[in-house]
Computed example of a mutant assay.
Amino acid sequence: MKHKMIIFSIFLSLISLTTHGQEKTMIKNFEELFNYAYKYYSENKPFDEISKTLYSSIYENYEFFLQTEEVSSNDSNNLQLRFKLFNSYALEGSYQYKNVCPILIDRTDSVFLRSEFLENYKYLNQFVKKFLTNPFNESEFPEKRLTTIPYFGDVEVTRQIIFLDSQMTPDSLEKRTSFHKLFEVISHLILANNELRNEISFVMWKKSYEELELDKKLAINKIAPFTVRITLNYKLPPSPPPPPDMELERFMMGKGKKK
């Protein structure tokens, strides 16, 4: 049961990774390593050695999930998106289906949005922006609650969350989700959210989101909350057992003959 007792200490001891220009970066734990790898992906730098360490940690350790969070950077006017590591027990609780956007990347890197195969990212972009705001109050999209937000007054805000599941633990054929595909999907989710923020910003202030002061950015963030929970070793539930053969059961009980 040690996998449920410790969250960081079993993970990585200090890992030295050689990158461009002989730069060496010390990574102390999985959370930092994941953020480091995503940064490299975003900058179009190779991160294969990092991903090997990530894979190894997932396979050898316990269940956990990462969740997006935004923190103020050194420049007080900017917000930085990071991924925070949590214990799996923090997932306890129920969510109404309409308030959840489930996305699965299977071991062949196929992407499924609400159990439907995703053919292109354009549809994902449109769906996510609609999911975050539910502009037409459709019943299959998140419910809303009236909230008072600076600069906007009383606004109906959705109660929602995006669950991004991947299958990083290999199957018997050593197939598993790639970090390239995982980061690709994450990037498109972030892109959709950024586009939505820009649209709100231009309507309200005739400026892009990045040009706004911090308090105005935070106000927009409250209008369309953006939370993604990422599960790295998600396993599909087992198939239900076949229906019982009543004739066989009667035969086994000595109450009849099976033809």
Rank of each mutant, 00 (worst) to 15 (best):
F47W: 04
F34T: 12
F202G: 03
Y62V: 05
Q126G: 13
N194D: 14
E143K: 06
E49S: 06
K130E: 09
Y121P: 01
Q126N: 14
F64I: 02
I15C: 09
N99M: 08
E247A: 12
E247P: 05
A90L: 11
E138H: 12
P150K: 15
N125P: 07
T177K: 03
P238L: 11
D245W: 01
Q22L: 03
N198K: 11
F141Y: 12
S201A: 12
R145M: 04
Y55D: 15
A224T: 15
V71L: 05
K84C: 02
N193E: 13
H180E: 14
L182E: 00
T169E: 10
L214D: 08
N44D: 15
E213W: 11
Q167R: 07
P243G: 06
H3P: 07
H3V: 11
F183V: 03
T18Q: 06
M252W: 13
F127N: 04
R250Y: 13
F86L: 06
M1D: 11
L146D: 05
N61M: 12
S239A: 13
F34V: 15
K181T: 03
F127S: 02
S9I: 14
K4Q: 07
Y89I: 09
G93Q: 10
T108V: 04
L212H: 08
R114F: 05
K122C: 10
Y55H: 14
S172E: 08
K257I: 08
D165I: 03
L132C: 09
E31P: 04
N221D: 14
I190S: 04
L113T: 05
L191I: 11
P243A: 13
Y40T: 10
K216E: 14
E69T: 12
K98P: 00
K39F: 08
L212V: 06
Y59I: 13
P142C: 01
I6F: 04
V128F: 00
I190Q: 04
D48R: 12
F112N: 03
P142V: 06
T18C: 05
I186H: 00
P225N: 10
I50T: 07
R197N: 14
P170M: 06
I230T: 06
L66K: 01
I10D: 02
K4R: 08
N35F: 07
P240M: 02
L236C: 06
F65I: 00
K28P: 07
T133D: 08
S178G: 03
P242N: 13
M253Q: 13
K130L: 12
E116T: 15
F226I: 05
D171Q: 06
E138T: 14
Y234C: 00
T25R: 12
Y36V: 04
N120A: 01
K222D: 12
A37C: 07
T68H: 00
N194H: 09
K175M: 05
H180Y: 13
H20A: 09
N35I: 15
S187D: 14
M253A: 13
S42N: 14
I58N: 11
S16V: 13
M246R: 15
V155N: 09
V155K: 09
N198M: 06
D154R: 02
E174V: 10
R176S: 05
F64G: 00
N74V: 04
